[in-house]
């Protein structure tokens, strides 16, 4: 089937079997291998991308269902020369060991900080009417869909807190 995806502002016209997941379309058909395949069952979060601004597991989604959608992957967040604030923060706090989960962690965290900014509550929020704050407990809860097999969690949380604080300072 013919599918058009806008990935990181570039239009990709792809001819795909309906079974192709969004993850496989991104990696194997569009050739953007920054997004990783971990469990391929929505349990690890390595495949997290943003679709129309929202984070999802690209492994649990069919590419044909996203015809016309705008996808942002790790390649669209920053470049080695111009890192996104979260990418820079992960380097600053050493927020990884092997690095395999990192693209998913950074895509997830990028969208998660927008969810906090929009005032979405979480399971650990004391009240449902906010304000939502990027505390350690909130970040741990909101990032629970991203596993790190190396268990670099303390530095991942530190990176996200650093990026969130820098954004507050800039605002």
């Amino acid at each position: 089937m013919h599918v058009t995806l806008t990935i990181n502002d570039t239009k990709h016209s792809l001819d795909l079997d309906p079974r192709t997941t969004l993850l496989d379309a991104i990696r194997s058909h569009a050739g953007l291998t920054g997004t990783k395949k971990g469990c391929d069952h929505g349990q690890c979060g390595a495949c997290t991308v943003m679709v129309n601004g929202r984070r999802i597991n690209s492994c649990l989604s069919l590419a044909v269902m996203h015809d016309g959608d705008a996808v942002t992957t790790i390649e669209g967040l920053g470049t080695p020369e111009a890192l996104s604030p979260l990418q820079a923060a992960f380097l600053e706090t050493d927020g990884f060991q092997c690095g395999y989960c990192t693209p998913g962690q950074i895509c997830s965290a990028t969208a998660m900080l927008e969810e906090i900014r929009a005032g979405w509550p979480s399971h650990v929020s004391e009240t449902l009417d906010g304000p939502a704050l990027p505390t350690e407990a909130e970040i741990a809860e909101r990032m629970s869909g991203n596993l790190c097999r190396c268990s670099a969690y303390p530095n991942i949380v530190a990176a996200i807190r650093l990026a969130a604080a820098e954004r507050e300072d800039a605002a």
Binding site: G45, R55, I56, N57, S61, H123, M143
Partner: peptide, 12 residues
């Protein structure tokens, strides 16, 4: 709802 699944899954 907030006690279930993950942020990514709840979005979908």
């Amino acid at each position: 709802l907030l006690a279930g699944a993950s942020g990514q899954l709840r979005n979908k």
